[in-house]
Amino acid sequence: TDCSIVSFLARLGCSSCLDYFTTQGLTTIYQIEHYSMDDLASLKIPEQFRHAIWKGILDHRQLHEF
């Protein structure tokens, strides 16, 4: 599957948040998979999107835990 942040955000309906990640040089889900809610806040992601992205990260982690 596509591991880009572009497609990750698109699946979550949060494509408008892409610039918050790319300006930090973040391009793949693996770069953010251990981010906390505070990390997302420090990227200045608007609160209404933060929870959806956080949930997406948690779902991603569960899929990749062996």
Rank of each mutant, 00 (worst) to 15 (best):
Thr22Glu: 13
Ala52Trp: 08
Ile57Ala: 03
Ser36Arg: 08
Ser16Leu: 07
Pro46His: 02
His51Met: 14
Leu26Ser: 02
Gln62Arg: 15
Gln24Glu: 10
Ile45Leu: 11
Ile5Gln: 00
Asp39Asn: 07
Gln48His: 14
Ile5Val: 06
Leu58Gln: 14
Leu9Ser: 01
Met37Asp: 05
Ile57Pro: 00
Ala52Asn: 07
Asp59Asn: 07
Ala41Val: 14
Phe21Val: 00
Tyr30Pro: 15
Ser16Cys: 15
Phe66Gly: 04
Asp19Trp: 09
His51Phe: 09
Phe66Ala: 15
Gln24Phe: 05
Ile53Arg: 00
His60Leu: 13
Glu47Ala: 13
Tyr35Phe: 13
Ala52Ser: 13
Met37Gln: 08
Val6Ala: 15
His64Cys: 09
Phe66Leu: 12
Thr27Trp: 05
Ser42Arg: 15
His34Arg: 12
Leu40Lys: 00
Leu12Tyr: 10
Asp39His: 04
Thr28Trp: 10
Asp59Cys: 09
Arg61His: 06
Ile32Pro: 00
Leu12Lys: 05
Ile45Phe: 03
Ile32Cys: 03
Phe66His: 15
Leu43His: 03
Ile57Glu: 01
Gln62Lys: 12
Ser36Val: 07
Ile45Tyr: 01
Gly56Phe: 02
Gly56Thr: 02
Ser15Cys: 09
Ile53Phe: 00
Thr23Asn: 14
Ile53Pro: 00
Arg61Ala: 11
Ala10Lys: 07
His60Cys: 14
Trp54Ala: 08
His60Val: 14
Val6Arg: 13
Thr27Met: 06
Gly13Asn: 13
Asp59Leu: 08
Phe66Asp: 05
His64Glu: 15
Leu58Tyr: 15
Ser42Met: 14
Ser15Asp: 08
Arg11His: 05
Tyr30Met: 12
Tyr30Val: 11
Glu33His: 10
Leu26Asn: 03
Leu43Gly: 01
Gly13Val: 01
Trp54Ile: 12
Phe66Arg: 13
Cys17Gln: 05
Ser16Gly: 12
Tyr20Ile: 14
Leu9Gln: 00
Gly25Asn: 10
Thr22Pro: 01
Ser42Asn: 15
Ser15Phe: 05
Lys55Gly: 09
Asp59Val: 11
Phe21Trp: 00
Arg50Val: 12
Met37Thr: 08
Asp2Trp: 03
Cys17Glu: 03
His60Pro: 03
Ile45Lys: 01
Gly13Arg: 07
Arg11Gln: 07
Leu63Thr: 14
Leu58Gly: 14
Asp39Lys: 07
Asp59Arg: 07
Thr28Met: 11
Ser4Ile: 02
Tyr20Ser: 09
Ile57Ser: 02
Val6Pro: 07
Gln48Trp: 04
Leu12Asn: 06
Gln24Ser: 11
Arg61Glu: 10
Cys17Ser: 04
His34Trp: 09
Cys3Leu: 11
Arg61Phe: 11
Leu58Glu: 13
Thr22Ala: 12
Thr23Met: 14
Arg61Ser: 11
His34Asn: 15
Cys14Trp: 02
Ser4Arg: 06
Pro46Leu: 00
Cys14Asp: 02
Glu47Thr: 11
Ser16Met: 08
Ala10His: 05
Asp59Gln: 12
Ser36Tyr: 03
His64Lys: 13
Cys17Ala: 08
Glu65Lys: 14
Cys17Asp: 00
Leu63His: 15
Glu65Ser: 09
Ala52Met: 06
Gly13Trp: 01
Gly25Asp: 08
Trp54Val: 07
Ile5Lys: 00
Phe21Ala: 00
Leu18Arg: 08
Thr23His: 15
Lys55Cys: 10
Asp59His: 12
Tyr30Gln: 15
Gly13Thr: 04
Ala41Phe: 06
Glu33Asp: 12
Phe49Trp: 09
Cys3Trp: 07
Ile29Met: 15
Arg50Phe: 05
Thr1Glu: 12
His60Ile: 10
Ser7Arg: 07
Thr1Met: 10
Thr22Gly: 06
Tyr35Gln: 03
Ile5Arg: 00
Glu65Asn: 12
Ile5Ser: 01
Gly13Tyr: 03
His34Val: 03
Leu26Tyr: 05
Ala41Tyr: 06
His51Val: 11
Phe49Leu: 09
Tyr35Lys: 05
Asp2His: 04
Met37Trp: 08
Ser16Trp: 04
Asp38Arg: 11
His34Ser: 14
Ser42Gly: 15
Thr23Trp: 06
Ser36Pro: 02
Ala10Trp: 04
Phe66Thr: 05
Pro46Ser: 03
Gly25Pro: 01
Leu58Arg: 15
Arg61Gln: 11
Ala52Leu: 12
Leu43Ala: 04
Cys17Ile: 05
Leu9Ile: 02
Ile29Val: 13
Thr22His: 10
Gly13Cys: 04
Asp38Asn: 08
Ser42Lys: 14
Met37Tyr: 10
Thr22Leu: 12
Gln62Thr: 12
Ala41Ile: 14
Phe66Ile: 13
Leu58Lys: 14
Leu18Lys: 15
Leu18Tyr: 10
Glu65Val: 07
Thr1Gly: 12
Tyr35Cys: 06
Gln48Glu: 15
Tyr35Asp: 01
Pro46Ala: 03
Asp2Gln: 05
Glu65Arg: 08
Leu18Pro: 02
Ile5Glu: 00
Ser42Thr: 14
Ser16Ile: 07
Tyr30Ala: 13
Leu18Ser: 13
Ile45Ala: 01
Ser36Phe: 03
Leu12Ser: 05
Glu47His: 08
Ile29Arg: 03
Asp59Thr: 06
Leu18Val: 13
Ala52Gly: 07
Leu12Thr: 09
Ser15Trp: 04
Ser36Ile: 04
Arg11Pro: 05
Leu26Asp: 02
Ala10Leu: 09
Asp39Trp: 02
Phe66Cys: 15
Tyr30Glu: 13
Tyr35Gly: 02
Gln62Met: 11
Val6Phe: 09
Gln31Arg: 02
Ala52Phe: 10
Leu18Gln: 14
Leu63Ile: 11
Ile29Lys: 03
Thr28Tyr: 09
Leu26Ala: 03
Leu9Glu: 02
His60Gly: 07
Lys44Thr: 09
Lys55Met: 10
Leu12Val: 10
Tyr20Ala: 12
Gly56Tyr: 02
Ser15Met: 08
Arg11Leu: 04
Asp38Phe: 08
Glu65Thr: 10
Ile45Thr: 02
Ser36Trp: 02
Asp19Pro: 15
Leu63Gly: 13
Leu18Gly: 07
Gln48Tyr: 07
Glu65Cys: 12
Asp19Gly: 11
Ala52Val: 13
Lys44Ile: 03
Arg11Thr: 12
Leu26Pro: 02
Lys44Arg: 13
Glu65Asp: 15
Gln24Tyr: 05
Gly25Thr: 03
Ile45Met: 05
Leu26Ile: 13
Leu40Trp: 01
Glu47Gly: 15
Phe66Ser: 13
Phe21Tyr: 01
Asp38Tyr: 09
Asp19His: 15
Thr27Phe: 09
Thr27Val: 10
Trp54Leu: 15
Phe21Gly: 00
Tyr30Trp: 09
Leu9Trp: 00
His51Asp: 12
Gln48Leu: 09
Ser4Phe: 05
Leu58Ala: 14
Lys44His: 08
Cys17His: 02
Gln62Ala: 13
Tyr30Lys: 14
Ser42Val: 13
Arg61Leu: 08
Ile57Met: 06
Ser4Glu: 08
Thr27Pro: 01
Ala41Cys: 15
Lys44Phe: 07
Ile53Trp: 02
Lys55Phe: 04
Lys44Met: 10
Leu58Cys: 15
Thr22Asp: 11
Val6Lys: 15
Ala10Cys: 04
Gln48Val: 12
Phe49Glu: 14
Leu40Phe: 10
Ile5Tyr: 00
Phe21Asn: 00
Glu65Tyr: 04
Thr22Gln: 12
Thr23Val: 10
Ile53Lys: 03
Ile53Val: 07
Pro46Lys: 03
Thr23Gly: 14
Leu63Glu: 15
His60Ala: 13
His34Ala: 11
Gln48Asp: 10
Lys44Trp: 05
Ala52His: 08
Ile32Leu: 09
Leu18Asp: 07
Ser15Gln: 15
Leu9Cys: 03
Glu47Phe: 05
Gln24Asn: 07
Glu33Phe: 09
Tyr35Trp: 14
Cys14Leu: 15
Asp2Glu: 07
Ile32Asn: 01
Leu9Asp: 02
Thr27Cys: 05
His34Gly: 13
Phe8Tyr: 03
Pro46Gly: 03
Leu63Phe: 06
Asp38Trp: 07
Ile45Arg: 00
Ile32Gly: 01
Phe8His: 03
Leu63Ala: 15
Phe21Leu: 02
Phe66Glu: 02
Leu18Phe: 04
Arg50Tyr: 04
Ile32Ser: 00
Arg50Lys: 08
Met37Ile: 07
Glu47Lys: 13
Gln62Trp: 05
Asp19Cys: 07
Thr22Lys: 13
Arg50Gly: 03
Arg11Glu: 11
Ile29Cys: 10
Gly56Arg: 02
Thr27Asn: 12
Thr28Gly: 08
Ser36Gln: 10
Asp19Ile: 08
Cys3Gln: 11
Gly56Asn: 03
Cys14Val: 12
Ala41Glu: 13
Thr27Gln: 10
Asp38His: 04
His51Arg: 11
Asp19Phe: 07
Asp19Gln: 07
Ser7Ala: 15
Leu40Ile: 11
Thr22Met: 06
Gly56Glu: 04
Asp2Arg: 04
Asp2Val: 04
Gly25Tyr: 03
Ile45His: 00
Asp39Leu: 04
Tyr30Arg: 15
Leu43Gln: 02
Leu40Val: 05
Leu63Lys: 14
Phe8Thr: 02
Lys55Val: 08
Thr28Lys: 11
Ile45Glu: 02
Ala10Glu: 14
Ile45Gln: 00
Gly13Ile: 01
Ile53Asp: 01
Asp59Trp: 04
Cys14Arg: 04
Met37Arg: 11
Cys14Ser: 05
Val6Gln: 14
Leu12Glu: 03
Ala52Arg: 14
Glu47Asp: 15
Thr22Tyr: 04
Leu43Cys: 04
Ile45Pro: 01
Gln31Lys: 03
Ser42Glu: 15
Arg11Trp: 04
